[in-house]
Each structure stands twice: as structure tokens, then as C-alpha cells.
Simulated assay, not measured.
Amino acid sequence: MNNNYDKIANHYDTLSRLVFFKSQVNAQVNQLQYIPKNSAVLIVGGGTGWILEEIAKMYPDGLKIVYVEISAKMLAISQKRDCKNNQVEFVSLGIEDFRTHILFDVILTPFLFDNFAEKRAAKVFEQLNGYLKRDGLWFIVDFSLDKGDGKWWKWLLLNSMYSFFKLLGIVEANQLINMHPYFLNFDYQIVEQRFYYRDFIKAVIYKKNKMTFI
């Protein structure tokens, strides 16, 4: 399993909105105001690319965006998005195979780490940390089981999702990895944290406090 969503690329957004309404969208859009003008932005696992149009509504020019997506079908949909005058480089690779000398001001990883087993999640985290500038911002949105009531239905829904994606041979993960300790270990601080969908979706903006290397 390589965490590739080609099989459901044309239906992914519809399926996510049927279950979560606009919670997944709002969790990501509400973070965009923190993107500095004229910055370099890395988006990993952006899916169908609707986030590019949301970024363009707020910043119609001046951004240099690298968009890494393993699903060729998702990437093809993303390339049709209206990015206004922003410069966007589309990369059809799994993030583990992506290499760059660019240091980014902002990294976005929406619902990325919930695909990975823990060993791969740690490896990807360290790789991306090396691509982020000192004082850079990391936007992470993912599912969460650590806040609020109703943990039983969150666990049930999460496991149903994993079972569905396993049936399709899409994801490798069996359980959700808590990424917060990784950020703490690399001296990140929380700029903003919000919860959505009765606290099942967590959106955090981290700031990198010092340069750390892999």
C-alpha cells in the first residue's frame, strides 16, 4: 500500500463532504490567513487541489507553491485549478521520494499523517522539518481522539474509515499517530489550535523556533 488515492480521486471530495460536511474544508481554509505574502509554500497531499483556489482568493499573486501529490489522478485535477498569478510547481511523487534544496516559509500537510504507520510518519516528519525555514510555519490538519466527549463514536468512525481504505488497498495505517510529540521534540510552538466536527478534526499551526537537521 502506498497511500495512493487514485481509485477514488474523482469522488473523494464528495465522499468527505457527505461525512464531514465542510469541517475538513473549514479546518484548512481558516489557517490560510497566516501565510505570509510573497512566501514559498510546500503543500503535501493536497488531494484534488481545491485548496489552491482558496489560497488564490486570499493571495492572487506572489506565492511560490510546490504541490506534492502521489496520486496522478488527484494531481491532474489539481492542475486544472485557478491559481491566479501564483507560481505553482506540481510534483507527482510520494513525499518520501521528493527532494528539494528550497527552504519553505510554510508547509501544509492536510490529513497526511493519518495515512502512515508510525515508522514512516517519523521519517516523513523529519524530512519535512528539514525543508522548513527557521521561524517557518507548519499547518497540520488531522483527525484527533484526544479531546472532547464521544470518544467511542470517533474511534468507531475512524476505524470504519481505515477499514474502508484498507479494503480498497489505499492506506498502510491501522491507527492514528499523535504527531504533537514530534513537534515538541523539535522545539516547535503552537501559534493556533482549533477543533472541528465535535473535536474530531484538529487544526494546528506550529512555528519552528530553531533550525534543526535530520
Rank of each mutant, 00 (worst) to 15 (best):
N2Y: 15
Y5L: 12
D6P: 03
T14M: 13
T14V: 15
T14G: 06
L15C: 06
L18S: 09
V19F: 15
F20P: 08
S23D: 10
S23E: 12
Q24K: 14
V25L: 06
Q28A: 11
Q28C: 11
N30A: 12
I35M: 04
N38A: 07
A40K: 15
I43T: 05
G46I: 15
G46R: 06
G49E: 00
I51T: 10
I51C: 08
A56P: 01
G62I: 00
L63D: 01
K64P: 02
V66Y: 13
Y67Q: 01
Y67K: 02
E69Q: 06
A72I: 12
S78D: 07
Q79C: 06
D82W: 06
C83G: 05
C83N: 09
V88Y: 05
F90V: 02
F90E: 04
V91R: 01
L93W: 01
D97E: 13
F98S: 03
T100K: 04
F104R: 03
V106M: 04
I107K: 03
F111K: 01
F116L: 12
A117M: 14
E118N: 11
K119R: 14
R120S: 12
A121I: 01
V124P: 02
E126P: 05
N129F: 05
N129K: 04
L137Y: 01
I140C: 06
V141T: 15
D142C: 05
F143D: 09
S144W: 14
S144Y: 15
D149V: 13
G150R: 11
K154G: 11
W155F: 13
S160F: 14
Y162I: 10
S163W: 13
S163P: 07
F165I: 09
L168C: 08
I170L: 03
V171L: 10
N174E: 10
H180Y: 10
H180P: 02
P181V: 00
N185C: 05
N185F: 05
D187A: 09
Q189L: 15
Q189E: 14
E192A: 07
E192N: 03
Q193S: 03
R194E: 10
R194V: 08
F195Y: 15
Y197R: 03
Y197V: 03
R198P: 04
I201K: 07
K202I: 15
V204Y: 00
I205R: 01
K207C: 00
K208P: 04
N209H: 10
K210M: 15
M211T: 12
M211L: 12
T212Y: 09
T212H: 05
F213G: 04
I214N: 12
